[in-house]
Each structure stands twice: as structure tokens, then as C-alpha cells.
């Protein structure tokens, strides 16, 4: 089987899911959210199969092409979404998250999957990239949930009884999920950095070489370490943790773009 069949299917299923979640936001019918959830689940399955096929056909280095990166990003984003939304009954987040998953899987469908640089990517490399994207996805989820929190908070304050009022749990609950997903992201990023260092030693004989990406990740890592400390010991609760979470993810985005623009030859730039 061609991986692209599965990649296209997952893009379509994610689009269906997005559509239903957006309609859910408008019409508030629980049925719509159920359809959204199931299409996301099936999309996740096809996405996973697509990624595995790509991995076995082209070798682990295909994960370091644009196609592979977008595919893994969509996959990890949806897995984070499925985990948190079903655990905490946050169907509404689908309307904010699934559009991105759709975009990434569409980009994965159209972008190149042929690696330009030959890289001896082994098992360690796969673990490194997957845990990095799991970390990014968790941070992205927390940032999007922070946006939802801020809207919900505003509606509560302005006495606007919208879909946020009726279909979300409490502010406190949202806040705890935001914090939870930040810690999950932090664990994965830390793990990914550790695995990356091990891998770097294997490839280049050094654990740390001050590559732009490494520096950028270190900055993000310290940012989130700071956020967690502020939340726990600095009493930065409520809206403040939301602002911090959005700030943290913006730094990650800036780093991501910066690294891709600045260092064309770096292993982290996902060039096809």
C-alpha cells in the first residue's frame, strides 16, 4: 500500500472533523461533536498508518523531510487533542485544534518526502523527533486552550451566555488542563533534548554543539521552566497562566521559523 493513500485519507477525515466541530460551535448539537470526534479518531488511525508506511518504505530519514515533519506534527497534535478532550470533556477544543491538524496533513500530502541530505537516522532519531513534536503539540494545545479560557472568561465577565458558557466545564478546570498540558509538553521536550544529545554524540561525537536549533530549544525550555515555576510558586494563576502559555508558544513558533530561515543546512531545518 502507498503511504500517500493513507495520508490523503487522514487529511480528508481531519477536514470532516474540523467542519463538524465548527458547526458544533454554531449549533451546539452534541451529535456534531460526536461525528467530529469519530472522524478525528479514524483520521488519527490513517495518519498513524501513513506515517508508519512512510517510515518503513523510505527509512527513518523520511521523517526529517517536510512531508514527514508535517505528518508527525499532525499525528502528535491529534493524539494530544484526543487525550485531553476525551479525558476532560473538552469537545469544544476540536474547533480550535482540528483546523491546524487539517492544515498540517494537507501540507504533508503536498510537500516533498525525498530527503536531500543522507542521514543515518536510527531508532534514536525517531524517538527524538516524535517526542519533540509531542512536546510542541502539548504546548500548542495549552496555548489554544488558553485562548479558549480567555474568551470564556471574557464572556463570563460580560454576562454573555454563549456556546463557551454552555459547553465548557469551569474556568478552574480549564486552568488545570492548561497547566497539565504544559507539564506534559515540558516532559517530552526535556526527553527529546536528552535523546537528541545522545544521538548527537553518536553522530558527531559531541553532546552539545550550540547549533541554532539547540540554542532556540534551550530558550524555549527555560521559558517553560519559568512558566511552571511562576504558576507553582509565584501564584500566577487564572488569566496570567494563559498569557504565559500563549507567550511560551509564540517563542517556540519564533524559534521554529528562525531556525528554518537562518540555518539552511542544519539537520533540524526539515528541508526536502
Amino acid at each position: 500500500m502507498e503511504p500517500k493513500v493513507f495520508i490523503y485519507t487522514s487529511a480528508v477525515l481531519y477536514a470532516v472533523s474540523t467542519l463538524h466541530y465548527l458547526l458544533y460551535l454554531i449549533f451546539r448539537k452534541n451529535k456534531l461533536a460526536v461525528v467530529g470526534l469519530y472522524s478525528a479518531r479514524f483520521g488519527f488511525l490513517t495518519n498513524l498508518i501513513g506515517a508508519l508506511l512512510l517510515l518503513f518504505k523510505g527509512g527513518a530519514q523520511t521523517l526529517f523531510t517536510p512531508k514527514g515533519a508535517f505528518l508527525i506534527f499532525a499525528l502528535t497534535l491529534v493524539s494530544v487533542f484526543l487525550y485531553f478532550s476525551t479525558k476532560h470533556r473538552l469537545s469544544l477544543t476540536g474547533a480550535f485544534l482540528m483546523p491546524w491538524a487539517t492544515l498540517f496533513s494537507v501540507l504533508a500530502s503536498v510537500s516533498s518526502g525525498v530527503p536531500k541530505v543522507e542521514l543515518p537516522v536510527g531508532f534514536v532519531g525517531v524517538i527524538h523527533i516524535v517526542s519533540a513534536f509531542l512536546g510542541y503539540s502539548a504546548f500548542m494545545f495549552s496555548a489554544l486552550l488558553s485562548v479558549i479560557y480567555l474568551i470564556f472568561e471574557r464572556h463570563l465577565k460580560k454576562k454573555k451566555f454563549s456556546v463557551f458558557f454552555f459547553k465548557l466545564p469551569s474556568l478552574t478546570k480549564l486552568e488545570s488542563v492548561i497547566y497539565h498540558s504544559i507539564t506534559v509538553g515540558f516532559v517530552f521536550i526535556t526527553f527529546s533534548m536528552f535523546v537528541g544529545a545522545v544521538w548527537s554524540e553518536e553522530l558527531f561525537g559531541t553532546y552539545w554543539s550550540w547549533h541554532p536549533k539547540q540554542v532556540a530549544t534551550l530558550i524555549s525550555w527555560f521559558t517553560y521552566a519559568g512558566i511552571i515555576h511562576l504558576y507553582l510558586y509565584g501564584n500566577w494563576k487564572g488569566k496570567r497562566i494563559c498569557y504565559l502559555s500563549i507567550l511560551g508558544f509564540s517563542i517556540i513558533l519564533l524559534n521554529f521559523l528562525g531556525v528554518n530561515l537562518l540555518s539552511k543546512k542544519d539537520v533540524h531545518s526539515f528541508k526536502g
Partner: peptide
Amino acid sequence: ELARKIFGD
């Protein structure tokens, strides 16, 4: 109900 929307439990 409003209290629960704010504080949850």
C-alpha cells in the same frame, strides 16, 4: 451554576 462555571467543583 455560575459558581460552578467559575470554580468547577
